[in-house]
Structures are given as C-alpha cells and as structure tokens.
Simulated scan of single mutants.
Amino acid sequence: MKEQNIRCSACTHPIGLQSFYGCTECDFSLHQKCAECPTRKWHVLHNERLTLVTNKELEVFDCYACKRKSNGFMYKHGNNSLELLHCGSISEPFTHPSHPHHPLYYTLIEKKELCNGCNGREYFILKCIEGDCGFVLGFTCATLPQVVNHRVDDHPLSLCYGEEEEEASGKYWSYICERETNPNNWFYTCKDHLACLHIKCVLGDSSGFMPRIVATCWTRSFEVVLNDSVTRPFCSRCKSRCMYPINLKLLGTSSTYICSNNCASHWRGTAI
C-alpha cells in the first residue's frame, strides 16, 4: 500500500508525514501520538475516568461531544463515547491558534451559545474567561485539523479563522461545491489564498470512518469508499455528484452510492 494511503487504525486519519507504527504482516498502523494515548484518563466532560476502547469490531459510534460518527478507537464511560484524537484529547487549559492570547475552559451552560468558528449554536463549548472576552468554540470547531490534504490542490490546505468584516470584500466561492462561502466563518484555504473552501466540502461528514471496511448505520450496511476516481458517482438520495472525500456504497451493489451520513440518515430508497 502506498504510504499516502495508509491510515491510522485509531483515529482513522491518514498517516501523512507523521511518525507511526505499522504491522509488517497487515495494514494495521498507528500514529505515534495515538499509540501513546493513555488507557485511562480524566476528561472535562466526565466525573469518572474514561477507558480507551480499541473498537476491534469497527462498530460505528456517535461522539458524545461533537456528534461526529466514527469507527475508530474511542474513550468511553457507560453509554458515552468520545473520539480518540478529537474530543477525547481535549484537556484544560485548552489552547487554540485562533485565540492565542488566552486559554479556553469547558463551561457548563444552560442553553446553547454561539461558536466563533462556525456561528452555529453549540452546547458543549470551550470559553475564554478573561474579562469580557467571551470567545467561544464548540468542540467540533475546536478539534478541526489545522492542515489537511485534498485532491483540489497539490499543496496542503490550511484552516483559516475567517475574515474580519472590514477586511472581507466581494464574494467568496468554494470551488468544490461552487457555492458562496461566508468569509466570517472558518474555512480552508490553499497556499496562495486564492480560494476559500467550506469545511464540510473539504472534510465531509464521514471523515471518522476507516475506508475499505463495512459500516452499519441506520440498519443498513455500507462499504466505506474513497471518492478518488476521475468520475464522481451520483448520490442515490440527493441525486448530486458525490463531492466529499469519503462515500458510502450500499453493500452488495455496484452503483448505489450515498454521499454523506446526512443523506444516509434520510435515505429510504432501494438499491439501484
């Protein structure tokens, strides 16, 4: 297997240029940082210590904090599971390059607050407690990868923390979906900063799935496939070209593709 196609069995993300351990007899690999995760740990969301679960059966689970689906390793206590490298890695004080001058802390809230990254309302948040700052990040935005490789550019894409209103001029377009991008929200940009790409366009909502395995979701079984062919398939639910990096193909079929978890959750069709 080519090195750029190797994925970590713990976090399911590409190995990339990071140090890793690999089995010489199969394709099982682990980032060094994932391999060194403690088997038990305290977490800001729980009063009890969480236990590392290696998820040998590749069971699909929903992360308790960010609601992303994954079939990688998890930290678990009772019925609550956290993604290993995303929400499971959050500790206090939490530092983030979008807010470098002050640390962030998990804050219990009675109602959802506005996230500075996506401008969406979140319940699990990390907040700046310095004076009247009020900077807030939901767990989803707080754990986005800072750099990601994507087929749209030969160079890695970098996470941009939005443009100030006085700096934003004209319209911004994501040339993956060919739709307008709100420059005040976070987005990914290329080396020359000539494009701003929606976060969902770059990552999709199935980035927590290990490719080339079978995932059971919503009482159906899907093969997890990389969307890396020259011609992108059509989604059987939304009827659009599948534009995200990972697709779901209904098991036992040759052409029934679903572009995202969102479409899979609403799809009531039959195989084609």
Rank of each mutant, 00 (worst) to 15 (best):
I176W: 06
C141L: 03
L58W: 07
H102Y: 14
S91T: 15
E130G: 11
P183V: 01
Y244F: 09
K191D: 09
I15C: 06
E122S: 15
D132C: 08
L50R: 14
R7C: 09
Q18P: 03
L137H: 01
A271S: 12
P38Q: 11
H102G: 13
V214F: 15
C11Y: 12
L114E: 00
F139D: 02
G78F: 13
E48K: 15
V44F: 09
G138T: 06
C133I: 02
T216V: 10
P145C: 05
T189D: 09
S98G: 12
W218Y: 05
Y64V: 08
T219K: 02
P245H: 12
A168D: 01
N247E: 02
E122R: 13
K171Q: 07
L126Y: 00
L144R: 01
C133R: 00
W42A: 07
S260T: 06
F234A: 08
F28C: 14
H150I: 09
N119R: 10
C115A: 03
E83C: 03
F61Y: 06
D62L: 07
P145W: 08
R49G: 14
E122T: 11
E166T: 00
G117E: 00
P97C: 12
K67E: 15
T107L: 10
C115F: 02
P211K: 05
K69A: 11
P156N: 10
V225H: 08
C238I: 05
G22V: 04
H193D: 05
R268V: 13
G120W: 07
I176N: 05
C242D: 02
Q32Y: 06
R40F: 12
E223L: 15
I246E: 01
L108Q: 07
V202S: 00
S29P: 04
Y21A: 12
N149S: 03
I15S: 02
N116Y: 02
Y106D: 04
C217D: 10
N80W: 05
V147C: 01
R68S: 08
K249A: 02
C133A: 01
N227A: 01
Y123V: 15
I129E: 05
C263N: 00
R268W: 12
E36T: 14
C66V: 11
V136D: 01
R68D: 11
V202Q: 00
R212H: 07
L251S: 13
R237H: 13
S221N: 15
I213C: 03
S236L: 11
E113R: 06
D154E: 04
V214Y: 13
E57K: 13
S91E: 14
T12K: 13
N184Y: 07
C217V: 15
R237D: 10
E83D: 03
C177P: 00
G131Y: 10
E180M: 09
G72H: 06
M243A: 09
N149K: 03
I199T: 02
N184M: 08
T216S: 14
R49T: 15
T107Q: 11
E59K: 13
G117K: 03
R232F: 05
H13L: 12
H101K: 10
H31K: 09
S207I: 01
T270C: 05
L137D: 01
C8L: 04
L226K: 05
S255I: 10
L85F: 11
P103N: 13
R49S: 15
